[in-house]
Amino acid sequence: MTGRNSGATRRTPAENAQLALLLEVAGTPKPGNVDRRRDLEDLRFEHFLAGTVGAGKGLRRAEHGARVGIAFERAVAGMSRQSGGNTQFGCLLLLVPLVSAAARGDLTPDGLDRVVADTTVEDAVSFYRAFEHVDVAVRDPPAEMDDLDVRRGEAAAPTLRERGLTLSDVLALSTGDAAGGGMEEEARGETDGEPGAETEAGTRGIPDWNAVDWTTGFERPFAVAASIRDDTGPIGDRTARAFLEVLADRPDTLVATSHGPAVARDVSERAADVRGDLEAADALADALVEEGINPGTTADTVAAGLFVALERGLSV
């Protein structure tokens, strides 16, 4: 069992998940991403606010014990009901199992392992169905895995059922760049960027970090939560510093998918150069927006970390 937020500010896990989404997009600067000071051409701050409201029904279903796949698909469907398109697909992929674990009173890496192990084939079908609600930037799968490309949506259901693949199985495959086209979103911009020339060789060194979290007890969100709680100052500043730390430590999956691994590694090096310096990061944020580089997977991790921090007592 883990401690919950208490007193007059006590919130349910679903409410904390929505608050985490709001705090994530309000943090600034987060280089390359929408924040409260920066919009992209077709994706604006208010789209994320509306997406957060829309995701609420699915998050509440997770809190009330619904299957993870169903809760996720419902959260994505609700999130999609705004004019900006895909805003928080990857965030929800992390938050739904976190909400499920928190509602069970077991928000721990072991508790998340149990949530993941409990997923079914029908959860996988619901996961694929979620891709029908929004455009999601993914890698092309190997030819032999074409029938498991997530862009097939519910059309992949017969293959999933025939092979007996649970949602846990699908995401485990994705950690090795082997299935589903990479399971990665274009959360901070809806361009359909193609992988760079070196992607075939290089992205194997830059995995789908969201899938990795699913298979490792969500270790990184717990680490991010600790850094946010240990930090001081306004939560928006803590969020921005956490974003820089994650981006500096891990080349972003979405950047690698859209621009190639060399660009992803270069962005991480640029983030490392300004980590902890929000004034310098502000200039980097403007530069990455101008270059059309969106580290959306990093934002997913930070949103998940904010949720864990809120559940563990971060005061707002």
Rank of each mutant, 00 (worst) to 15 (best):
P195I: 06
S258A: 08
T239C: 13
R265L: 00
D237E: 14
A178K: 03
G202A: 09
E194H: 14
L244C: 01
A187P: 01
P251C: 06
E190W: 01
D249R: 15
G260V: 09
D208Q: 04
P234Q: 00
S227N: 12
A225M: 14
E186G: 08
M183Y: 03
F222Q: 11
L244N: 00
A211C: 12
L247E: 01
V212M: 07
D230N: 15
G202V: 05
V224T: 15
A272Q: 11
D177V: 14
A240G: 04
G181Y: 14
R270W: 10
T239G: 06
A187T: 00
E184C: 14
L247V: 03
L254N: 02
H259K: 15
E185N: 09
A264C: 10
S174M: 12
L244V: 04
S227R: 15
I228D: 05
T199I: 08
D237Y: 03
F243M: 06
G202T: 11
G202C: 09
R265F: 00
A179D: 03
A262V: 07
D231M: 10
T191A: 05
F243C: 04
E269G: 13
F222D: 06
P207E: 02
R229S: 15
D252N: 09
E245I: 08
T175K: 08
R188K: 07
T232P: 02
G189A: 03
E198K: 04
T215Y: 00
S174T: 14
G202S: 10
T216A: 12
E184S: 10
S227L: 12
S174I: 07
A242V: 12
G180C: 14
A179S: 15
V246Q: 05
G182T: 02
A178R: 06
A264D: 02
A211M: 07
T175R: 11
E198A: 13
T232K: 10
T215D: 09
S227V: 13
G181C: 13
G180H: 06
E194F: 11
A240I: 08
E194T: 15
E200P: 03
A264G: 07
F222T: 09
V246A: 06
D230I: 12
E194C: 10
D249G: 13
R220D: 06
V255A: 00
T175A: 10
G205H: 12
E186K: 08
F218I: 10
E184W: 07
R188G: 04
G181E: 11
P234H: 03
G180D: 04
W209E: 02
L254I: 04
T232Y: 03
E186T: 08
D252Y: 10
T215W: 00
A211W: 03
V255M: 03
R204V: 09
E200I: 08
I206D: 00
G193C: 10
T232C: 05
R270A: 11
R220E: 14
A272C: 07
G193L: 14
R265A: 08
W209M: 07
L247Y: 03
G180W: 11
G205F: 11
P234S: 09
R238E: 04
V263D: 03
A242G: 11
T257R: 13
G196V: 04
E219C: 05
A178L: 13
D208V: 07
V263H: 06
D252R: 08
A271T: 02
I228A: 10
A197M: 10
R238S: 10
T257P: 01
E200T: 12
